[in-house]
Structure formats: structure tokens, C-alpha cells
């Protein structure tokens, strides 16, 4: 077949133009700014080499943000994937109770993170919050979810998971449905019990879904902004700031765009490294059938 070049260009060029101007160039600029002391306003700025990065690795608030971000990532990745697989396996039956549960768990997924964060900040209040009201019925003294930054972060991680679990569950259900039924039946005939079937057949064959979900959940956790911004605003005194929150604050609150670019670049490199490692690990475990 011979194709008219003009047609090919007309079809492919608009996308690549937008992508280059609004993605690749800003990405390059982020790299560039991270080596400058640009403040976001003035025309003059200097190349300062690796100074931003040196300062970054001496900055206590960066280490704290890193810690907060990693805690959120670990908790949410665990909940999304362990509970996600569990719910997918348990709810993958054709009856009304399971259909209802799947729809219910998916509802929070369509809600905006801001809305979810407001609802939960009421629920976890120390005085008059729902959790403490319910605990009070059983005579349990009220819990202060804000007493230490780490408690707050752990609670926020649970809230994020409540918000997003439905998506991960649905992807796991879809992966589960790609497993041929005959395999299960064959294993059952061979005398494998439920636990054996789960670990020997279901889990290995769910690897493609686990690859997608672990990368999605990991990247989601590392760039967390919304829930923390609404619930604590990063406070008290920056103790619950994530890397994204810190970077945005430096860029717009303190007009230190160069420094902020360096912070966000480190985050980006982290995401790339983690995703590459993860994909290579889980891809190796994907089995052919």
C-alpha cells in the first residue's frame, strides 16, 4: 500500500505537537530550572550547578517529606493490593450480595479527593467525630488522630485507600476473569484445596493485574497531594508535608522555583526507578498458560 504522507502527518502531528510543547519542553525546563536559582518572577537568574541538590540533601524538611511520602506509599500500596486481591477473589461470584458490595466499594472512587478529605476530617475529629462517637458507645475513650504527625499520616493513608480501593479491586476482578475456568476445575479434581488453588494458580495468573496495580498505586502514593492538603495542609509546622506539598509550597509560597524544581525532579527519578524495578520483578513472575 502507498500512503499519502500528508494524511499521515495530519493524523499524527497534532498530538505530538501538543505533547512536545506541553509535556516534553516543561519536563526539560524542570531539569534546567533545578540547576538555577530562579525565583519565578525576575528575568535574571544564575546557573548554580548542583547547589539546589546539595542544599536539598541537607534540608531536614525534605527528609521529613520523604519519610511522610514513603509511609503513605507503603500503607496505601499494601491496602490497595492485599485488600484489593482479597476482595476481588471473594467478591468474584455471580450473586446479588457480591454485585452490591462491588458497586458500593467503587462509589468513593468517583468522588473528588477534596470531598473525601472533608468528609473524613469530620469523621476523625477528636470531639464529636463519628469514630469517637461510635467508640464512646462501647465505653472506649476518644482517640486523638492528630496527637502525633505519624498517627495523622497513618490515618490519612487509610482515607486515601478508602477513596481509591474500588479502582484496584475492579482491575483485579477483570484480571481474575481472564483465568480459564478449566485450570481451577483441573486443580480441584487433582485435590488442591482452596488455599493451594489461590497461591498456586490464582495468584501467579493474576500477575499482569498485579503489575498494573502496583505501578499505579506506587506512583499514586509517591505524588500524594490532595488529601494531605485538605486534612492538615501539611502542618503542624510542615510535619505532615509530602514531597509534592513541599515542592508546591517552595514554588508558590516562597517563590523558590529552582529549588522546587530540584525537589520535584528527585520525586520523578524516584518514581522512574521504583516503576522500572517493579515492572522487572513482576514481569518475571508473569506465567504463560
Amino acid at each position: 500500500m502507498k500512503h499519502k504522507k500528508t494524511h499521515d502527518i495530519l493524523l499524527a502531528a497534532p498530538g505530538y505537537l501538543i505533547y512536545t510543547v506541553f509535556m516534553i519542553i516543561p519536563l526539560g525546563l524542570c531539569l534546567f530550572y533545578s540547576f538555577t536559582n530562579w525565583d519565578g518572577i525576575s528575568k535574571n537568574y544564575k546557573m548554580i550547578g548542583f547547589k539546589n541538590f546539595v542544599r536539598l540533601f541537607q534540608d531536614a524538611s525534605f527528609y521529613n517529606a520523604l519519610k511522610v511520602t514513603l509511609i503513605i506509599t507503603v500503607i496505601t500500596v499494601l491496602i490497595y493490593n492485599v485488600l484489593g486481591v482479597f476482595l476481588a477473589v471473594v467478591l468474584n461470584r455471580k450473586n446479588r450480595a457480591c454485585a452490591f458490595a462491588k458497586s458500593a466499594i467503587f462509589v468513593p472512587t468517583v468522588l473528588s479527593s477534596v470531598v473525601v478529605a472533608f468528609i473524613w476530617s469530620y469523621i476523625m475529629q477528636k470531639d464529636g467525630g463519628i469514630i469517637n462517637t461510635i467508640l464512646g458507645v462501647f465505653g472506649i475513650p476518644p482517640v486523638d488522630f492528630y496527637d502525633t504527625p505519624m498517627h495523622t499520616i497513618a490515618m490519612i493513608s487509610v482515607i486515601i485507600s478508602w477513596n481509591g480501593l474500588g479502582l484496584f479491586m475492579v482491575i483485579y476482578v477483570a484480571t481474575l476473569n481472564t483465568i480459564p475456568q478449566e485450570l481451577m476445575e483441573a486443580a480441584e479434581v487433582d485435590g488442591a484445596n482452596g488455599v493451594q488453588r489461590f497461591f498456586r494458580i490464582t495468584l501467579p495468573l493474576m500477575m499482569p493485574g498485579i503489575t498494573i496495580n502496583s505501578v499505579l498505586s506506587m506512583a499514586g502514593g509517591l505524588k500524594q497531594y490532595d488529601h494531605v492538603k485538605v486534612i492538615t495542609g501539611g502542618g503542624p509546622g510542615g510535619a505532615t508535608q509530602t514531597i509534592t506539598l513541599l515542592s508546591v509550597e517552595k514554588a508558590f509560597g516562597y517563590n523558590r522555583r529552582g529549588y522546587s524544581s530540584a525537589i520535584i525532579l528527585v520525586l520523578f527519578i524516584m518514581i522512574v526507578i521504583v516503576s522500572v524495578i517493579q515492572i522487572s520483578i513482576t514481569k518475571k513472575r508473569e506465567v504463560e498458560y
Binding site: 522546587s260 520525586l267 516503576s275
Partner: peptide, 23 residues
């Protein structure tokens, strides 16, 4: 072009937000 298009898949939007304000 295929490889070029996939560069952005790991870039969270927040990375390009600050420089996008300039562009």
C-alpha cells in the same frame, strides 16, 4: 515516535506544573 510518546507515562503532572506556568 512510539518510544518518544511513552516518556511521559511516568511523569506525574506535578513535575510539569511549575515549568508549565512559564510556557
Amino acid at each position: 515516535l512510539y518510544g518518544y510518546a511513552l516518556i511521559g507515562i511516568m511523569v506525574p503532572p506535578v513535575v510539569t506544573l511549575v515549568p508549565s506556568i512559564k510556557t
